[in-house]
Computed example of a mutant assay.
Amino acid sequence: MKVLYLEDENLLGRIVKESLESRECEIDWFTNGHAAKPALESADKYDIAVLDVQLPGEDGFTIGQRLREKFPNLPILYLTARVQAKDVLTGFEAGGNDYVRKPFSMEELLVRMRNLVQMRKGGTASPAPDQPGDAPATAPGKSSSETYEFGQFIFDYPNLRLHFRPPGSEGLTHQLSHREAELLRLFVKLKGQSVIQRKRILLDLWHDDGFFNSRNLDVYVRKLRSMLEADPRVRIITLRGVGYRFVVE
């Protein structure tokens, strides 16, 4: 893994850098956003960004949000001593894919990093392109090469894109994060099912149904709703305490 790492505590930074390098990672370590500016501008060369939250100058959340806007597929992991749920939610809303609480073990950090990188590789693999003139017609609501049509949307799962295509308009394209795409694909596949259990979503996507992942799910549902509200016929309905329904009228 090639890792962009921001941590202002010199002792901790050195320990993490040396430990990860001993595990066949390549680490570019910076102590603040200003020093990391050239690396941040070309962060697509990294497999993952690991950001301490409490940095001098720009904090990790601000830097992470900027990275997410410029490099939507880059996995971002926050390191934080904050334990309040609102702080964790802030991190996810600022583009984070995961977080590790300080103090942490190197084993936990490495496992979480590898998981995010593996998910990114699995989520962005594109199918072989069709030859010109050979593209098959796709009926509404069906899938071809993991492309789904519902309402006025075309969901290109392999390329993490959601296209809104109303009649007579050029529409709009949203670039999704890997987790947003995974969640939307689950909803689409279970379209019309009376209940999509919340627990099932958490176990399928996070492999854990704990409190913080549950709050993370709330954030991603809100993000998807904001994209889907362009077509009122497409709705994610919350069934309190149970789960969701994905409805296309």
Rank of each mutant, 00 (worst) to 15 (best):
H178T: 14
P136W: 08
H207R: 15
L224Q: 00
D130K: 05
I236G: 02
V88L: 15
H207L: 13
G60R: 05
L51T: 05
G241A: 05
L11C: 06
W206A: 12
V221W: 00
E9M: 10
L202Q: 06
F211V: 14
E170K: 13
Y148A: 02
M119Y: 09
N213Y: 15
E21L: 05
T80S: 05
S144A: 13
S226D: 15
V117T: 12
H163Y: 12
E58Q: 14
R235K: 15
R112A: 09
R101A: 10
D218W: 00
D28A: 15
P140D: 11
C25K: 09
N97G: 12
D209Y: 11
E24F: 12
G91M: 03
S126V: 11
Q197I: 06
E180Q: 14
F61H: 12
K2Q: 15
T124A: 10
Q131W: 11
V88G: 01
L20F: 05
Q54G: 04
H207M: 13
L4D: 08
Q65L: 12
D156A: 02
L55Q: 06
R225C: 09
Y157V: 13
S42K: 14
Q54P: 00
I236E: 00
H174W: 15
L55K: 02
C25T: 00
I27E: 01
E108Q: 13
P232D: 12
R222G: 08
R222E: 14
V53H: 03
S145D: 15
E26T: 14
